[in-house]
Design a binder for these strands. Sequence first.
RNA 1: GCAGGGGUAGCCAAGUCAGGUCAAAGGCGCCAGGCUUAGGACCUGGUCCCGUAGUGGGUUCGUGGGUUCAAAUCCCACCCCCUGCACCA
Length: 871
Amino acid sequence: MDLKKEELLLKIWEEEKRHISDPNNKPKYFITAAFPYPNSPQHIGHARTYTLTDIYARFYRLLGYNVLFPMGFHVTGTPIVTMAEKIKEKDESLLKVFENIYGIPKEVYEKLTDPFDLVMFFSKEIEEGMKRMGYSIDWRRKFYTSDPHFQRFIEWQFQKLYKKGLIVKGTHPVAFSLKLNSSVGAHDTKGDIDPEITEYTGVLFETPIGYLVTATLRPETLYGITNIWIRKDETYKVIEYQGKKLIVGNWDILKHQLPGAKEVGQISGEELLKLEAEVPITGKRVPIYHGDFVDPKEGTGIVMSVPGHSLWDYYEYSKISKEPYPVIIKIEDKESKAEDYFKSHGADPKKLQELNEEFYHLEFTKGFHVPLNAPVKEARELVKEKLKEKDSFITLYKISNGPVYSRAGDEVIVKVIENQWFIDYGNPEWKKKAKELLKQMKIIPEEMRSRFENTIDWLKKKAATRTRGLGTKFPFDKSQIIESLSDSTVYMAFYTFAHKITSYNPEQLTEEFFDYIFYGTGEPIDDLHKELRQMFDYYYGLDARHSGVDLVTNHLTFFIFNHAVLFPHKPPKAIVVNGSVLMEGKKMSKSLGNIIPLKKAIQQYTADVLRLTVAASTEIIMDANFSESTAKGVKERLEFYEKAFLNSEDGEKDDLDEWLEKKVQHYATLAYDHYRNYEIRKVTNLLFYELYKDLQWYMQRTNKRNFKNIAKIWATYLAPIVPFTTDYIYRELFNESVFDQTLPVFTQATFHHEEEFLRDLIEDIKQLLRFKKGKKLYIGIAKPWKFDVYKRLEKRDPIKTIIEEEPRAKELIKKLKNKAYTLTFPYERESLIRYLERHKAFIEKELGLKVEIGEEKEKYALPDKPELLIE
RNA sequence: GCAGGGGUAGCCAAGUCAGGUCAAAGGCGCCAGGCUUAGGACCUGGUCCCGUAGUGGGUUCGUGGGUUCAAAUCCCACCCCCUGCACCA
């Protein structure tokens, strides 16, 4: 199979309109894969999910289903916008990726400074690649999520969720760049670092002029406070927040985390030193000291001092005070003291930070909180609750893996967004419905199910809107845009009528309009409207959703949630999850530069070879390893089949032909079940690798090439995986398309074991000939009683009885060891001898020996291993 | 921390759910031979250890125990590795 033949077939399929689907009276099968985000060309990794989807689309067509396999493009979110901006800014690292990895010339990408130009450019690339791979997609139904008709559909979705009380409003911390004036994800930072947010407890200490705020990860230690650290050379702000006066440093950052807080004055550190502060909960009054080590840009610039349980505090405290301090945590009934830990670990002040972290971890995992009589883990939560009761804490945030810099160059901070809209996946009723739906669904592979269950459990409110990026405007606040994972949860329903709905003006697509289509409520506005409903009704209930394993904990779970409440009458039936693709054993990445663009790979290997290598060379959940050598191997083997089958004859049949035909039927029978169990590797194992050995043997045995019958079965069974090669062979041999056939199903799955016996025998003799040369070979078949013993063993007659009735069996069974318990033995003595006699000429020719067949002369023969005597 | 996945010969990797044809498929690498002017490709054989005119013996599947006539596979404990934890597609 070469590229030209593949391209010719693509044209033929196109002309024959093979992949468009409309409602008819056949049973339908609606299959989809997660649509691509067009911000890069496709590489062979992307091809995995789509190829698997296509394999099943084609498989179900061969079973007689009316299969719909559509595709669209996800044009939502910020990465595309950011990319366009980076092109405009001539961002060097991006330009390098374009040139070196994607192989896009400068003149082309330079112009892509508008996000939509980028989208069109890449989506065209991707579409061409998908077509070239032979994906049997109904392209009439293609849409972009930026299409106004689709956006009306998303508005419908959010109206519905809102009315069900599943859209809620609240505040939410995000990583934020002041320079970009936008929240930032990994793609907005230098070095693509994903900013991580940790929550701090801001504890409020009352003083006569307001509350001092300290930020801590260990609120439980406030039982051990001796003093407060500040810096005397710093100026602190007095702010008003939720009716209280608070004193904080680092205000430039913190003001973004305390919505509504107002600066009302300031106070110098020197002034603060004169005050005393009251520790909440305990009511203890503590002094305020200056500490050089206090970083005014860290937290609130005010630190609570717990010398008993912080190495820093101990170290600083011991410099200025000899007073004893409280120790409130025990480990295994012994006081856990920062001082002891420090001293027993070298007492090196340079290692203070490192040791302190170890010590924190130790106390957190093993410590026991004495005042609260609880493990530290629990005490922390208890303290938080108490603080909440006393109204003595505020929540603060920090970038924990910082400093992270935005691509504009400023340090990323945490900002608390007010009026943030959420989809409330934490809603217990909704969780319940999602779980019920999950229970009804088939999850492939089944091991993935628990992951879905867990995800449903821990999913909480999800921010559903953003201020920046492409997408549909949020219906309840038009200044916001629906976030991209939230607008792609039920879009599969849109495919069912995507090519027809464009006849309407977007304004006509009201909530009632969609209600009619999806629920049949209200009246149709015209005949087309009626037709849309019929199409939805015919196709929906998605039969299979294919996706990569990385989408399980997000997209696929949202998919379940949303279907559970929006389409409870048309539930999806199955989710099929596949692993990713490795490149020569390594993860593909831009930095490694080991990404092969799909188009380039097709030119090098052909679509069929890629399909088999990427999608069918390993089981569905495993990562497929793409390597040049495997791809080459696949290519050669495919060519072998093509050549062999195209040279088929239609001659007279003999033992050997019958054996081969039955063998292929046997493989087909097994392969059918493997397909249904999504065990594609097993399909190719049989029909691609095992059969190869059988064909080799056949060709060794005879010069005949009676392959027509097996080519027919072979092509039909492998057509889903390698559609080009199989259809080409089928058309050449039988003058029709393999895709007009129905998959032949065989019930009788036995084959001629005698032939296998002969094959093994030749193997054994060849082994023996390496030690011993001669001119004559005597093949001594085991005596009848030995065959009887084997037969009885196969029937699982008790070994004891067999030996009782045939004492000679004892030795025989002893030799077999464990095998005696599981023996399978499909041979009959008489027919075996007849078969060998019939093919004696072949054995003689093959070995260059004179052969005689008879009963064993010595007593070494076993029924499956004849005695071999060379003279 | 919480959740999930995994440790199999030099490497990759099947086998584990349903214990026994498992010294353990397949591939790569390596060794020997064939083919070839040579290299590559291809073909044949070998590749845990010992033995060998064949069908044998020993020791292996992260570690340590257990169940069983029988364990890579079942049970228990331990060690190690990887992934996800969100507003990001």
